[in-house]
Amino acid sequence: MNARERLRLLILAVLERQPEHGYAIAQAIKARSDGLLNAREGTLYPALHALEAEGLVESQEHEVGGRVRREYRLTGKGGGALAKSRQAWEKQVRAVGAVIGGGA
């Protein structure tokens, strides 16, 4: 799984809990990883655009406090893709853990 695929997995996992706007997705990734992972805008929005084009997330504009904000939501197809990516990731982690040892 390369960096681009990992970012897609992280976005889908964040949206599984609830619909969010872009900045909140970036913050959730940072907070849940204790600051270890950082989704910069430069890669976050292109990834969101790609996920939307593939029908894995959908977005809608809302007006909040006089400002238009775009909220992203996981679709049913996105849920399926998330489950698949999660399995692939867990398999990779198990494989690396088996090689490096140390109870990983």
Partner: peptide, 22 residues
């Protein structure tokens, strides 16, 4: 997308935005 992101992060458009946006 970008301007909304800056606004949410509380970063002024006149500041250096690279630390936040990359």
């Amino acid at each position: 997308d970008t301007l909304a992101h800056l606004h949410d992060a509380g970063v002024d458009e006149q500041e250096d935005v690279r630390p936040l946006l990359g």
